[in-house]
Write a protein that binds this DNA or RNA. Sequence first.
DNA 1: CAGTATCCCAAGCGATACTG
DNA 2: CAGTATCGCTTGGGATACTG
Lengths: 157, 157
Amino acid sequence: MNPFSAYDSGTCSIARTMELIGDRWTILVLRDVANGVRRFDELAGHLGIARNVLSSRLARLSDAGLVERTAYREPGARERLEYRLTGPGRELIPVLIVIMQWGDRHLSGPEGPPVVVRHDDCGAPVRTTLTCAEGHELGDRPRLRLEPGPGSRVRSS
Amino acid sequence: MNPFSAYDSGTCSIARTMELIGDRWTILVLRDVANGVRRFDELAGHLGIARNVLSSRLARLSDAGLVERTAYREPGARERLEYRLTGPGRELIPVLIVIMQWGDRHLSGPEGPPVVVRHDDCGAPVRTTLTCAEGHELGDRPRLRLEPGPGSRVRSS
DNA sequence: CAGTATCCCAAGCGATACTG
DNA sequence: CAGTATCGCTTGGGATACTG
């Protein structure tokens, strides 16, 4: 009867995702990797994270397939390792953007946000919008309805 | 020279937002409150969270202005307290949706996602999209450019 | 440079008992 | 019912030293 019993914490996609990225550092690591910070020491320095923690976060992200470690060699230089987002990792970028957008609006000072994200092709600022399959735009405070999906454990009787 | 020095961890909107919601429980509390679970014991039972932790999370969310506690009284019943999202709190819903969307795609089993979110007005499923101010849709793996914003501490010289 | 290993502390969390 | 208080465990995290 309560539609939200479908939302049991075990299978909920939000819960599962947060298990992966819901700690103090992981999202920031992803942010930096997405922004082209690719080497271990560079990440450690820029984030101010302890090296062992960075190591374990990168390992988890790599296990989950969000980040891959590859070797590369600049001409004449010795081999180096770098981290890059995989496909699934890049698909997290919209998550980073919405979070940033919310923070820009509600947590940045009167000076405005410290960073602006633009569409690289046209230079216009980027934003996220909520739309439905009928093409309606839902705005910031959308009217939503939840229903059990195909993977629901709740019988629809 | 490095555009990402603008992204110092102190002012970054992602970092600031994650300080607020970047732990194991807060997002799930927000999810439940957004879904109409409004009373303390109901939240505690549904989430399986320890009561003291729930208490402290609600306090933090309330301090931050994402959630407000109000008293209400059903006719004939005694007074009760309930939590509701404030305006800024409701603006976090798109964050919940993108996270859920990503988890649906990458972390749910072959059965599919346990919950589907629909536009309440038309019943069509909801999704988030990245667009730029020029109206281009950017897709899952967008080509982005970062620039220091007005609140950047980095001189633009 | 790119990590891993160790040590220790602080925060987060769960269980439980208690109060209005 | 709606919380707060207390306790002890467990995890996360910082500093530092060490290895290939």
